[in-house]
Design a binder for these strands. Structure first.
Lengths: 146, 146
DNA sequence: CCGGATCCGTTTCGATACTG
DNA sequence: CAGTATCGAAACGGATCCGG
């Protein structure tokens, strides 16, 4: 056990695993990163159709922990925009590694063409791919008329 | 929504999130990677003290999905060794990204000295750090007398 | 209509105890 | 040592309802 003293502190658990090691949280992050979703309704429309209760619960947690911010619309007084903050952007590398792993081990034969292309990009230029995702998200956020 | 067609297939959910997006699974992987744990009892001794029921359940799932293999001891007929297979080793990049994220955002001030050092290594030479972890694990597995 | 909250039957969790 | 058994508590998830 080479790092027996440290392995706990390297990966502190209580706080980060409760949020990162959670299916619904990861689905929300995925939808924000690759789908640029920001509205309650948009998340609900994902193929996994997460119950509104779970969605509301996780969005609140993510907000409390500073992953995202909640903004009520000015034009659209009804809409509430959930947008990633710095801490949320810092999850991109984790999500990309998960994506790489998923396409390698649990590839489900949907969207073959694009996925193969994305898979190559992710692996050959991982950091570039992550940077591009972040840039795209920031651009989306900037251009969003609330 | 730039990748609206593909974002689902990039990160297929049903299969991989049920195992990767799970707190107990991640704790087991963490203990195997950084703690070189392989026995039921060793996992139980982690500070998070996962219930034996959860542990047994997740070990079974991880075995069924090919992340690890289960070997009954020859010398120690009572012992059962859980050891990572290729698919398990492929989770290292994910785990390292989580570790980087955790130390950045939820650092809990335990084991400060080593963690700072590890944090630097992880960030400055991420791929090297991952390779080293994998090499160390393989060495541990090779040298293990069952 | 959008963003949730509430209700309720079912599943899972998690703590403790127990067994081969 | 490596798991089961049990059982109350919590979470899930599907449907419906509600307020702005």
């Amino acid at each position: 056990m080479p790092n027996s003293v440290s392995f706990r502190s390297i990966c502190p658990v209580a706080t980060s695993l409760d949020i990162i090691g959670d299916k619904w949280t990861l689905l929300i992050l995925r939808d924000m990163i690759w789908g640029h979703k920001s509205l309650f309704n948009e998340f609900q429309q994902s193929p996994e159709s997460m119950p509104s209760k779970m969605l509301a619960n996780r969005l609140k947690k993510l907000e409390e922990l500073g992953f995202l911010s909640k903004t009520r619309g000015n034009l659209n007084k009804k809409s509430v925009y959930y947008l990633l903050e710095k801490r949320g952007l810092d999850t991109f590398p984790i999500m990309v590694e998960m994506a790489i792993f998923s396409t390698k081990h649990f590839f489900d034969h949907l969207g073959t063409t694009y996925t193969k292309e994305a898979r190559t990009t992710m692996k050959t230029d991982r950091q570039g791919y992550i940077s591009e995702l972040i840039t795209n998200y920031k651009k989306f956020k900037r251009n969003l008329v609330i």
